[in-house]
Simulated assay, not measured.
Amino acid sequence: MTAIAIGPLAIPLPPLLLLISVLLGLLVAALVGRRYKVSVTDPLLTLLLGSLFFGRLVFIARFADSYDTIWQMLDIRDRGFDQGATLLAAVLILIWLIWRRRQQRQALLAGVLTAGMLFGVFSSVIYVGRQQAVLPAISFQQLNGDMVNLAKLGQGKITVVNLWATWCPPCQREMPVLQQAEQRYPDVLFVLLNQHEHPEIVQQYLQQTGLQFNHLLLDQQGRVATELGAHGLPVTLFFAADGQLISSHMGELSAATLAHSLRQLVVTEQ
């Protein structure tokens, strides 16, 4: 599952679980702080924002060639954060806070440990669920009418499957990024899997935009989204060469986040 559907809205799962973990951590810290008659809300928010800020800076530095403008660097909707740098910053800031705010030490540790343990459990559950997800052996129609089996198409190849629709603005914005990536990474199979639309609508959109992809398939019943719990659009699924789902991204991809996910895939294959 990549997201939770709430009515017409689809909320990406990892950020939602991080938010829940942080809120519960703040609650525990507040309860412990009340016992010692101290408040730790501001230090904990400093810890959270400071570590995320550092993680973003490191991510931008690693993928600087994927950003064209300052605005793209500032736009955190792509959720591009270096996890190692974020964790390191969190540990260093926590040590500094404990050293400077000894009266708040117990509450700080209680809040951080609660948030960290909860997010760790949530992440483990997601990982276990992902281990059971593979590239579906479902046949889909191409624009020329031919049928293609998705699992056979991706057999033995690192595969990126993007779920999209012509009416979806984030999908429209990320399509050029995917087209450039298909040209840049010839050893990676990119599959653009249109959702619930008639072939003529898709063909007309491609002609208007000048976009071209080697593998564009039509999932008119949304079978992949249903099988893998991929709610909302756009959704990008990253599969290893053995067909195992390695990661997913719900929402608009930037060139940097796509490059990051592909790099993780290559490392997994090694």
Score class of each variant (00 low, 15 high):
1 M>G: 13
3 A>N: 09
6 I>A: 14
7 G>I: 06
10 A>N: 10
12 P>E: 06
13 L>G: 01
14 P>M: 15
22 V>L: 03
22 V>I: 08
25 G>F: 05
26 L>E: 10
27 L>I: 01
41 T>K: 09
57 L>V: 15
58 V>C: 13
62 R>D: 13
64 A>M: 10
66 S>I: 11
69 T>E: 05
75 D>I: 07
80 G>M: 12
82 D>S: 15
82 D>V: 01
85 A>M: 04
85 A>P: 02
86 T>A: 08
87 L>P: 02
92 L>E: 01
95 I>M: 14
100 R>M: 03
102 R>C: 08
104 Q>W: 04
106 Q>I: 07
106 Q>A: 15
116 G>H: 09
117 M>R: 06
119 F>W: 14
120 G>A: 03
120 G>T: 06
121 V>P: 02
125 V>P: 05
135 L>F: 07
139 S>Y: 00
139 S>N: 11
142 Q>W: 03
143 L>T: 07
145 G>V: 02
146 D>Y: 03
150 L>D: 08
151 A>R: 11
160 V>D: 14
166 T>D: 10
169 P>K: 14
171 C>D: 11
172 Q>S: 12
173 R>W: 00
175 M>F: 07
178 L>K: 06
190 F>I: 03
193 L>D: 07
196 H>R: 11
197 E>V: 00
204 Q>W: 11
204 Q>C: 02
206 L>I: 00
206 L>E: 05
207 Q>F: 09
210 G>M: 04
221 Q>C: 06
223 R>S: 10
229 G>K: 13
232 G>Y: 09
234 P>Q: 12
241 A>H: 05
242 D>P: 04
244 Q>W: 06
245 L>P: 03
249 H>G: 12
250 M>C: 10
252 E>K: 00
253 L>I: 01
254 S>I: 08
255 A>P: 08
262 L>E: 01
264 Q>G: 11
